[in-house]
C-alpha cells in the first residue's frame, strides 16, 4: 500500500514537472511571446527593447529563467497580463468559481438522473423500458455537448424564447435565482451527456452484480426488491461509476471551454480563448499551467481512489 502511494506520488511529481516545463516553454520559445516588445509597443527602438530584456532577465540561459519562474509560481505569482493590466493569479481567482459552478452542477445533475435510470434499466434488463433507455443513451453518446448546446439554443432561445441565449453573468452570491436560471441551458448541455454515459456504466455493472450469489441469497431470505436493489446491489455496482465521475470532473475542466464559449459565460475557458486570440501569452501560460495541473492532480486522485477501493487492483 505504502509502495503504491509512493509510486503514484513520484509519478505525479514527474508529470507536474513536465506540465510546468511545457507551460514555461510555451511562453519562452514563441516569437510573439517577447514581453519586452509588447510592453514597449511596435515603435520601440531595438536598444530600448534590449535594455528592457536585460532588465527583465530575459537574456539569461533557459534553465536559469525556468527556475526563477518556477520559484515565482510556487509563491503564487503567475506574472501579469499585459492586456488586462491585472495579475494572472487575480484573473484566475475571479474566473475559476464560474467554471467550477458549471462543472459541479452538470456532474451533480448527471448523477442525480443516472442512478435511477441505471438501476431501472439493469433491473428491467431486456424489457422495452430498458431498450428505450439503452438506445437513447447510445444515441446521446453520439451527440457531443456542443451539438446538444446548439439544439437547446435553437429550441429554448430561438424558437420558444423562454431562456436567454447569452445572458449577462450574475454571480450566485448576488442574485442566486437569476444565476441559476441563466445556467439552465449550459448546465443541461453538459449534463445530458453525463447522464447517458453514467447510466450506461451503472447498468452494465449492475447487471453483473444482480447475477451474483449474494443477491440470490438476499432474495432467498425474502428481502424486498427495493431493499436488495438499494442496499445490496447498488453499493456493489458503483466502482466503475465513481471512477468515471472522477474522470468527468477532470474532463469538465476542459469540456467547459466550449460550453462557456457558446453561452458567453466568462469562465476559465472563455478567458483562455480570448487570451489566445489576443496572444496574451503570460495569461495563456498561467491558465494552461493551472488547468493542466488540476487535471493531472484530479486524475491521480481518482486513480488512487479506485485502486484503494478495489481489492483486485490494490497491488497493481
Amino acid at each position: 500500500m505504502r509502495q503504491l502511494l509512493l509510486r503514484k506520488l513520484v509519478e505525479l511529481i514527474v508529470v507536474l514537472f513536465v506540465v510546468t516545463l511545457v507551460s514555461f516553454l510555451l511562453l519562452s520559445l514563441v516569437p510573439g511571446g517577447n514581453p519586452a516588445v509588447r510592453m514597449l509597443g511596435d515603435q520601440a527602438t531595438p536598444e530600448a527593447v534590449a535594455e528592457l530584456r536585460a532588465e527583465l532577465g530575459l537574456d539569461d540561459p533557459l534553465p536559469t529563467r525556468y527556475l526563477r519562474w518556477l520559484g515565482d509560481v510556487l509563491r503564487g505569482d503567475l506574472g501579469r497580463s499585459i492586456d488586462l493590466n491585472q495579475d494572472v493569479a487575480d484573473v484566475l481567482r475571479e474566473k475559476v468559481p464560474i467554471t467550477i459552478e458549471l462543472a459541479a452542477l452538470s456532474i451533480g445533475i448527471g448523477v442525480l438522473f443516472a442512478v435511477p435510470l441505471g438501476i431501472v434499466s439493469a433491473w428491467k434488463a431486456g424489457t422495452r423500458l430498458d431498450k428505450v433507455i439503452t438506445s437513447t443513451s447510445f444515441a446521446v453518446l453520439s451527440l457531443p455537448s456542443f451539438l446538444i448546446a446548439i439544439v437547446l439554443l435553437i429550441l429554448f432561445a430561438v424558437r420558444w424564447k423562454i431562456l436567454p441565449a447569452t445572458p449577462a453573468w450574475v454571480p450566485i452570491t448576488e442574485a442566486p435565482l437569476t444565476n441559476l436560471k441563466n445556467l439552465i441551458l449550459p448546465v443541461s448541455a453538459m449534463a445530458i451527456g453525463e447522464i447517458a454515459v453514467l447510466t450506461r456504466v451503472l447498468r452494465s455493472d449492475m447487471i453483473e452484480v444482480l447475477q451474483s450469489n449474494f443477491i440470490e441469497a438476499a432474495r432467498a431470505k425474502g428481502m424486498s426488491n427495493r431493499y436488495i436493489l438499494t442496499r445490496h446491489a447498488l453499493p456493489a455496482s458503483l466502482t466503475s461509476m465513481l471512477t468515471l465521475i472522477g474522470l468527468q470532473i477532470a474532463g469538465a475542466l476542459t469540456g467547459a471551454v466550449i460550453i462557456e464559449q457558446i453561452f458567453g459565460l466568462p469562465g476559465l475557458g472563455r478567458t483562455l480563448l480570448l487570451a489566445i486570440s489576443r496572444r496574451d501569452l503570460v495569461l495563456v501560460q498561467g491558465m494552461v499551467l493551472i488547468v493542466a495541473a488540476s487535471y493531472v492532480i484530479v486524475n491521480s486522485l481518482v486513480d488512487l481512489t479506485y485502486r484503494m477501493t478495489d481489492p483486485r487492483l490494490r497491488h497493481g
Binding site: A125, G126, D130, K131, T134, L141, V197, V201, S204, D205, I207, E208, Q211, T239, S240, T243, L244, L247, Q248, G251, D303, Y306, D310, R312, L313
Partner: peptide, 24 residues
C-alpha cells in the same frame, strides 16, 4: 471518450452473452 472508458472501467463489465438485451 474512448480514452476515458479505457482508464475508467476496471475489468468488471458484463459478459455480454449473459446480457439479455444484447443477445442475438
Amino acid at each position: 471518450m474512448a480514452e476515458t472508458v479505457a482508464r475508467t472501467v476496471p475489468d468488471v463489465d458484463v459478459d455480454e452473452s449473459r446480457d439479455v438485451a444484447n443477445a442475438g
